[in-house]
Amino acid sequence: MTSKKIHNDWELVEMARQGDMNAFAEIVSRYEGKIARTVIGMLGETAEADDVGQETFIRFFKSIHSFRGDSSLGTYLTRIAINLSYNVLKKGKRTGSLVQIWNEEEKEMDIVDESQDHEEKEKGEMIDKAIQSLEPGFRAVVNLRLVQGYTTKETAEILGLPLGTVLSRLSRAQMQLQGKLKHLI
């Protein structure tokens, strides 16, 4: 039986710097979920979200030699993902509403998997819609603080904003979300 050594992030980065593509693939695999939560949280389940997710890792690959480890790898990648998402939103590449490109696949899966809780799914969609209706600046704060569970201070650091601005955006976003999700809260 062969045992695979589990490397920490920094070891993987060092290995990837030496040209070990398997190590980089491990980084992608390890942070795929986090980046998905960031990017899909910002853009919705769109074709751009998948592209931005890939681009996040490509950017990191290109700049891997300049990664000093001042912040954790997850935070560093999240920062890239947020900035790229902002760029997409600024360029207006999005259609505005939550366009789910693999909606059809999911619908098919629903038919097969009859045990799936439709009520839960509807609730999730409602929450997504409410988040997507927020302005990008508010959406980023909500995504990092409430969806991903970063602290307010970490959120401020990732977004490069003063703590007061993050708190203010959180309070305002809370009011807007309450209005939209009042039957859930």
């Binding site: 693939a25 992608v28 695999s29 795929e32 979920g33 998905a36 939560r37 899909i40 949280g41 389940e45 979200a49 998948d50 997710g53 890939q54 693999w102 999730g124 929450i127 997504d128 988040i131 909500v142 409430l146 969806v147 569970g149 999700l181 859930l184 809260i185």
Partner: peptide, 14 residues
């Protein structure tokens, strides 16, 4: 409510 949200890329992302 929001911490329950989880998003995934399509399979084969890596």
């Amino acid at each position: 409510l929001l911490s329950e949200r989880d998003y995934h890329f399509r399979p084969g992302f890596v």
